[in-house]
Write a protein that binds this DNA or RNA. Structure first.
Length: 507
RNA sequence: GCGGGUGUAGCUCAGUGGUAGAGCGUCACGUUGCCAACGUGAAUGUCGUCGGUUCGAAUCCGAUCACCCGCUCCA
């Protein structure tokens, strides 16, 4: 664990030092759970989003039977009509009232606590964790003593109810599950993870709205618009990349659990009887996508959710997890969920009062059916963090031990051009090479300081290739190319730099 | 929300009552001429903030803010 933490600390330090990621609002002391991407970080992030959009929307892989299908994009507003979140279940679902015990310092979910109470409303009550038999047994024992009956007779003189039915005023009479004194439980407090805001300048309750906790609902809300305007036919997918917000109680692990984050989501609509096939297709496609961008498969673990973990409407869900240096357990990068027809049905109910309002016609059978949905939902920032930790390399035998081994598609800077020294006509040879490359690839020119420092800087930025113009260049027109990964060098003709890059990067 | 820790230069940190420091990094000049090279020089600080004690506070006391770690929770 120690060395893992050290690695993570080094990565965080490098991210800051080289301008990948800064803490938000640092000059004012920062703000927990929010992060800024610097010059290199924002290039990396663009590369990730561009790769996803290209590979999933512009040019998606052939379907399970080799057939093609349509993928289209949307870009929805972050603030939507609050009814969207009632329909999606977020207003209820993300709202977990919590109860703290001031004595035992424990925290409980209010809906998971029960109390044993007698007829007398002024009498003592005994709380226990509903799903914990030991906790219940303890409460029963104490209650039996208090009511002066045997444990078997207790149910005759008391009733067991959910804590949520207890009057706020009566909380002083409750004995907490792990407390010795009465009245140590706080009243249930709301821990809704959605950010609230107000639409319009007046902060009235009627103008309350939410920052979206996921981008998916914008897609569902526009399902009919897209069907009506785009000539798409099932099976097809709608994709969106955008910001989402969750007011995490406890943001941790660098950018992994942030309060503001970006998602890349697909809602793929298909016929119910093909949904299992498409679910497996998207699960495998998404897993392979990460591998294709340099995430090693032994750190990447698809994990099928267990029956208990699944949401009640979901038939199946695979979390694609990655082994970050900050934890010994894999952490979720993406969830590929089979959502059945839950979302469209919910929006049908809430917006039109009809469950099947968004059913579509099957051309072959002339029957209307509710499309089923496969949802590959990826975290941009999480994959970005994974690509950074994956790229981070340390080799003490190198002059520059730390280097970032980014996949060529993700590398923020693809090449650098250096005159070995800033004189003897070398900058004049270097400049046209730089000017040509930068038209096609992000490229940097650097003539300052020693060549070693310049290579080291590019290693930390993860730049795959550096072209250096030296004394020999003026004589025979060749330059050296230096490879980031093994620091090897070769000479090529200066006219071949761009061609060399295209070839080696595969872009 | 509870408990613990930390706030001094861009970074890592030293400085326990008496002039604000080091290494690294950054920048300039010179030298060198392919791997964080060498020499010389420079810039960068309301010592987290506010208040108290004191002739005098980065240092002692109080409060406050922010961040980090653990618990809790978790797309």
């Amino acid at each position: 664990m120690g060395s893992q933490t050290d690695t993570m600390d080094k990565i965080v330090a490098l991210c800051r030092r080289r301008g990948f990621i800064f803490g938000s609002s640092e000059i004012y002391g920062g703000i927990g759970g929010f992060w800024d991407y610097g010059p290199l970080g924002c290039e990396l992030k663009r590369n990730i989003k561009d790769a996803w959009w290209h590979d999933m929307v512009q040019c998606p892989p052939p379907g399970p039977n080799g057939e093609s299908y349509q993928m289209v994009g949307v870009d929805c507003s972050i603030i939507m009509n609050p009814k969207v979140w009632e329909a999606s279940g977020h207003v209820g679902g993300f709202s977990d009232p919590m109860v703290d015990c001031k004595e035992s310092k424990s925290r409980y979910r209010a809906d998971q606590l029960s109390v044993i109470k007698g007829q007398d409303t002024a009498g003592q009550m005994f709380a226990f964790s509903s799903d914990d038999e030991e906790s219940q047994a303890r409460a029963v024992k104490k209650a039996a003593k208090y009511f002066k009956v045997s444990a078997d007779e207790l149910s005759g003189v008391t009733s067991t109810v959910s804590l949520e039915t207890v009057d706020d005023a009566a909380f002083g009479q409750i004995l907490g599950p792990e407390a010795k004194e009465v009245g140590t439980l706080t009243q249930p407090r709301d821990f809704n993870l959605m950010f609230e805001t107000f639409v319009g300048a007046l902060q009235e309750s009627t103008s309350k709205a939410y920052l979206r906790p996921e981008t998916a609902q914008g897609i569902f809300a526009n399902f009919k618009n897209v069907m009506d305007s785009t000539r798409v036919k099932i099976p097809f997918g709608i994709a969106q990349i955008g910001k989402a917000f969750l007011n995490e109680i406890n943001p941790r692990n660098f950018t992994f659990r942030s309060r503001e984050f970006e998602q890349m989501e697909i809602e793929f609509f298909c016929k119910p009887d093909t949904s299992k096939m498409w679910y497996e297709f998207w699960r495998d496609t998404r897993l392979h996508w990460y591998e294709s961008l340099g995430i090693k498969s032994d750190k990447l673990r698809p994990r099928e959710q267990t029956e208990e973990e699944l949401a009640h409407y979901s038939d199946a869900c695979t979390d694609i997890e990655y082994l970050f240096p900050f934890s010994e357990e894999t952490q979720e990068l993406e969830g590929v969920a089979h959502r059945g027809c839950y979302d469209l049905t919910q929006h049908g109910k809430h917006s039109k009062g009809k469950e099947n309002a968004y059913a579509v016609m099957d051309d072959a059978t002339k029957q209307r059916f509710m499309p089923h949905v496969i949802e590959p939902s990826a975290g941009v920032d999480r994959f970005l963090l994974a690509s950074i930790t994956e790229a981070y390399s340390y080799d003490e035998n190198r002059a520059s031990p730390e280097f970032m081994k980014f996949h060529p598609r993700l590398a923020p800077i693809k090449a650098a051009v250096f005159p070995l020294v800033a004189k003897d006509g070398m900058p004049e040879v270097a400049d046209p090479i730089y000017q040509e490359i930068r038209k096609h690839f992000p490229c940097q020119f650097d003539a300052k300081q020693s060549i070693g420092k310049r290579y080291a800087r590019m290693d930390e930025a993860g730049t795959p290739f550096c072209f250096t113009i030296d004394g020999q260049s003026k004589e025979d027109g060749t330059v050296t190319v230096r490879n980031r990964d093994d620091a090897s060098q070769e000479r090529i003709d200066k006219s071949r730099c761009l061609e060399y890059l295209r070839d080696k990067l595969g872009l």
